[in-house]
Design a protein around this nucleic acid. Structure first.
Lengths: 165, 165
DNA sequence: TATTATCTTCACAAAGTTGTGAAATCAGTG
DNA sequence: CACTGATTTCACAACTTTGTGAAGATAATA
């Protein structure tokens, strides 16, 4: 096996490892594989055909996967004018997207807990338990944006130090 | 339908709603239902038999669910001396448990990203992308415990204000 | 407007997951 | 130590999810 083949092999193996982790987090399996493939591609951009080839799946599977990833803001679809093929790339600030998703989720939990309090009664022990759940998620929904801002600031500083523009 | 029956009905419906949300987060379905049932029970404690009855499932299903929840620290198994039945209750500080789980997960992501950097080379564009992923998760792994401490402090204060001991 | 490359949709088959019933195991009690 | 109620294990069936192939839609060229 050539040096290049070996690297490709290790690379594909890593794609699967990354994808498996994402799948365990609740992502659709194919979406996880597509995202992982884009992550490990230097240009960060692949066409639907290239993705199908790389992952040994049908174009239909790619189609389904990108339909899941795009609305989440984790990948972007792009089309070079004069090219018939769509291509996909990982979004630059994808961690921001994943954070936004978290945020929406936390707010949903706050609503669910509130609904439960209505059913159970705020003064019952179970109602109080749900109120604590609601407060917990409310707290995180408030704090997470601040935390993310700090991450962003740190990142900008690191890039400046590295001389990246 | 009596007043009580109506409340029970609304309660069971809420159990399913809560459970569905947890299931969408990646929990096993039955584990989510068991946890939800314990959450809405005033005493916060039910026997395996009561859970099976309440959720209309076999004891075997309960067995499987608690085997998932207990190691996560979300519920505790208890046995009143002189009783043959196990009972389960939601853990007092369950949000702490869920946070700890998050923390372990973040560290796993840091490891996965590092492995990817080894495969791709730290100086390649894809390697740099993974380094950013690693840094992101490392940042959160550091910050989350601090955030949780603040939540805990706020909670203690609220309990003091309420006169809860 | 016809042609062709590309992508999407949909019915279905393969694979995976989940809960059941029955048998086995475990732990109190007489 | 046998009895009995409770829980667990395991093979299997029901149900879900996932990816495929083929047909249909879309968009760039001629």
């Amino acid at each position: 096996m050539t040096r290049e083949a070996k690297r490709d092999d290790a690379l594909l193996q890593f794609v699967e490892k990354l994808a498996l982790g994402l799948a365990n987090m609740g992502w659709q399996r194919m979406a996880a594989r597509v995202f992982a493939a884009l992550m490990v591609t230097d240009s960060g951009r692949l066409t639907a055909g290239e993705l199908a080839e790389l992952l040994s799946v049908s174009p239909a599977a790619i189609s389904g996967a990108v339909r899941y990833l795009e609305p989440l803001g984790l990948i972007a679809r792009e089309r070079v004018p004069g090219d018939r093929r769509d291509s996909y790339r990982v979004v630059d600030d994808m961690w921001y997207a994943s954070f936004l998703k978290q945020d929406r989720m936390l707010k949903l939990w706050v609503d669910t807990a509130s609904e439960g309090i209505d059913v159970l009664g705020a003064s019952t022990p179970a109602g109080k338990r749900l109120a604590e759940m609601r407060d917990f998620f409310e707290f995180f929904a408030e704090e997470l944006p601040l935390l993310f801002e700090r991450w962003h600031a740190r990142r900008l500083k690191a890039q400046y130090a590295d001389g990246v523009d």
